[in-house]
Design a protein around this nucleic acid. Structure first.
Lengths: 200, 200
DNA sequence: ACAAGACTGGACCGAAAGGTCCAGCCTTGT
DNA sequence: ACAAGGCTGGACCTTTCGGTCCAGTCTTGT
């Protein structure tokens, strides 16, 4: 952590992480070797180990951090504006579109299921992402309640858990079946408690 | 498929599949090599390839089939008795207990995320499991409606999608955070539409 | 200008793991 | 009893892949 990185070095490191993340998103973590990353980022073996002395494991942790930040960034500004009328649908559409476009490739799933089990560090990164995501949704529920748009008796954390689980579960089902319908149905159902008249 | 298997051969094959499934459940698919399976099942390399000529890939497909059947079997008889008053809670408790006990090790997740992406055959097995599971839940919703215990306007398939997604998503969140609370909250919320007074 | 050290290229190594092969044993059907 | 062929053991091959090493180049601070 006390390494001295020049501007050039930082750029190279960033290029490696971004390139590796893209490969992993597209092909799955266990399908991507250091050689693939090396080729995709126009680097050499020694550069990989220069910037990530602990090798593959450290690089993958960096990818996890990168992807976790990306997941939240993709939902902005909608995620932090949850609360008002229409804000839920706008966010929902962003989420659904995002998963529809990237198909079966979910960075979170790739990291949790493929790397998490054998790497506590990555597990921690994903756990923090879940917590953060959960907190932001819960905050939105709270704002909706303040605005008088949601039942005051609802517990925001519980609604947030259900909503987030609907997304994650919908993605799992999409990855298995190839259909995005389950995701839409689950997310709509979870959000129905906030705007009952929108439920189908 | 037209192979001639004696009783002894079938038993050995079954032992290999069950042993491999257990290892994969405990350690993750990519952590289990043919040598581990060989050691755990007291077999030799040639036996593995005798019963699974296509090697590792074919064996993993067999494990997928085995695990998929297990997932549904574990929920019986509760799954097929969904509908009446109290049946949902009984089933919910079975599901929650099951995941609480096996912790972060979910056979479905292991297969989908670790093997599915690179093996269409396994994807198909998991897809069929999802469809079957979904259909059984939907059937239960239909029975509840017939019994007058659920809103007739509910679409059973949509409720089933939301419920199944709540389970899958809750498991993903449990694997990441280590807490089963999200799973319980999500599943309870999804089932709340069937018995509104039970919702917290 | 000139060290110090950050940066880069690529050959090389060793372990791991999937897969092959063949020789010998056991079961089955006639 | 005796082939035919399923069943088993284990040595061996081959490729992949993470990781090491070293020599050489470019940057930076003084």
């Amino acid at each position: 952590m006390t390494r001295a990185l020049t501007a050039k070095g930082a750029a190279t490191r960033q290029r490696i992480v971004a390139g590796a993340a893209q490969l992993i998103r597209a092909q799955g973590a266990d399908q991507v070797g250091l050689d693939d990353i090396r080729a995709a980022t126009a680097t050499s073996k020694s550069q990989l180990f220069h910037y990530f002395p602990d090798g593959r494991a450290e690089l993958l942790r960096a990818v996890a951090v990168h992807e976790a930040a990306e997941v939240l960034a993709d939902q902005q500004p909608f995620l932090d504006e949850l609360g008002p009328e229409g804000s839920w649908k706008a966010w929902r559409d962003v989420v659904v579109r995002r998963y529809r476009e990237q198909g079966i490739h979910c960075p979170l799933t790739a990291l949790t299921a493929q790397l998490g089990p054998s790497d506590p560090g990555i597990r921690a990164v994903v756990a923090r992402l879940i917590d953060e995501w959960h907190a932001r949704i819960a905050a939105g529920v709270g704002r909706a309640q303040t605005l008088g748009l949601a039942e005051p008796s609802l517990r925001p954390e519980k609604v947030a858990s259900a909503t987030l689980a609907a997304i994650q579960g919908g993605v799992v089902m999409m990855q298995a079946t190839g259909s995005i319908e389950h995701l839409e149905a689950a997310l709509d159902t979870a959000l129905a408690v906030l705007a009952p008249r929108d439920a189908a």
